[in-house]
Design a protein around this nucleic acid. Structure first.
Lengths: 233, 233
DNA sequence: AGAAATATTATGTACGTACATATTATCTTT
DNA sequence: AAAGATAATATGTACGTACATAATATTTCT
């Protein structure tokens, strides 16, 4: 690289990554400081900074003020998982989406939901179960509790037409959430809804979302057999 | 916000996010352009740019040159999953890590591995199975194929002492990889290794990694019952 | 009117300077 | 020598300017 051509932060990013990959800089190594790299690569420090910042957020570098920048000793790969609305996930596979509301009731929550959302047992909540279908076949079974106090307008939503999943995404934005992925054996009831056999291994996604410190909704999303969640890393 | 105090891109980030959350700007809405926002918030365009860029990468905004910036119509939440070395994951839970090599053999791969890695059936590969334990209990069963052509030094590694998982992370950096998460019923053999019952639902992580277009390794990581993968979103 | 060329515009990025901040290294004091 | 104060330093960030780029809007040409 000569000093005349303009450098993009991407080219710096790629060059640094190349040096990590080719072990010019090994895990744990201290790499040159920003000003030195900028000089080496013929660009401004801001450009190097942007590239290194990106690499740090990707988990390749550890950066600390005054201490400098090191190649991550234990490369933690950060997989980015897109969590779209179920309808879009199904349509993205080129399948036809359908949805059925199974059950909707206003009542007080069971203990595990109280614990998840941090609410009292007397809370006013909406309990909804529904089924999402791809090409007419059961794809995902949704069992959800929504806090009516946090999201009163949910009572006006026509949950026969739009799934709670999608309604909430559009009307109840949240500031933070938890997701847990696990595997469970289908219960008799779950197996029946998903048209499979009891005991079949199912992929489970448990999601709880919050607006500041108010619990909004807690959902149990159970996917039909064969479901795989993909991520490129 | 007055124009004298210095703005940080984070405060701009938070303010824009607040406006999205409070529906000042609704999904699909066009938000003010960078120069206008900068004027409103009393900071430089670069600062607004940084904040909006971040929000776009988080999935809250859609940005296009000339067309402007819109609130994402279908907020795709991007969960960040950390995929550390198994040893660190177990130690991070405060448990004691142990590891046992079960089996290691140099041979040609079966068809599904060839397909995964894009190699021929005559490839020279190392097949390794091992067990990772947390506090003495089976935690994860690893079934891995490693391309000897891509990583010849694996033959010198003492896989009784260091797991292939960890050795590869340190010695065979990759440029890209795939991860699939799913749920499977334990086979008789798998159940025996993980000390559980056949048919038990198990969390499965399938990983394939590449250096440019050369397949390096393909692994099947089967977690003991009760395993949950967490992510904050 | 329709197509092609051109102008316009919002975002994308580079650069240099300035200062903030966290952390380490050094010096001073007791 | 230990503790505390102080200096040094690499990264973190803000700002203004300049230009690049992609997408849209407008004008020109046929």
């Amino acid at each position: 690289m000569n000093s005349t051509e303009q450098q993009s932060w991407q080219s710096v990013h790629d060059e640094v990554l190349r040096r990590i990959h080719t072990r010019v800089w090994k895990p744990g190594d201290l790499i040159p400081k920003e000003v030195e790299l900028a000089e080496q690569l013929g660009c401004a420090r801001a450009t190097v900074n942007r590239a290194l910042r990106e690499l740090a957020s990707e988990g390749f570098l550890d950066r600390r003020r005054k201490a400098g920048t090191r190649v991550a000793a234990h490369p933690v790969r950060r997989a980015k998982l897109d969590i779209p609305v179920i309808r879009l996930e199904i349509e993205g596979r080129g399948q036809k989406y359908a949805y059925a509301l199974l059950f909707s009731e206003r009542r007080t929550p069971p203990p595990e939901i109280c614990a998840n959302l941090g609410v009292t047992a007397e809370s006013d909540m909406l309990h909804i179960t529904s089924l999402h279908l791809a090409d007419g076949k059961p794809f995902m079974f949704e069992d959800r509790w929504v806090s009516i106090k946090a999201t009163p307008t949910i009572l006006d939503a026509d949950l026969e037409k739009i799934s709670a999943n999608e309604w909430l995404v559009l009307h109840a934005p949240y500031t933070r959430g938890d997701i847990y992925f696990s595997a469970v054996n289908a219960s008799a009831a779950e197996a029946k809804v998903l048209r499979t056999d009891p005991g079949t291994s199912l992929f489970l996604m448990e999601r709880t979302t919050w607006e500041n410190n108010t619990g909004i909704t807690s959902a149990r999303l159970l996917f039909a057999p064969g479901y795989r969640k993909h991520s490129a890393i």
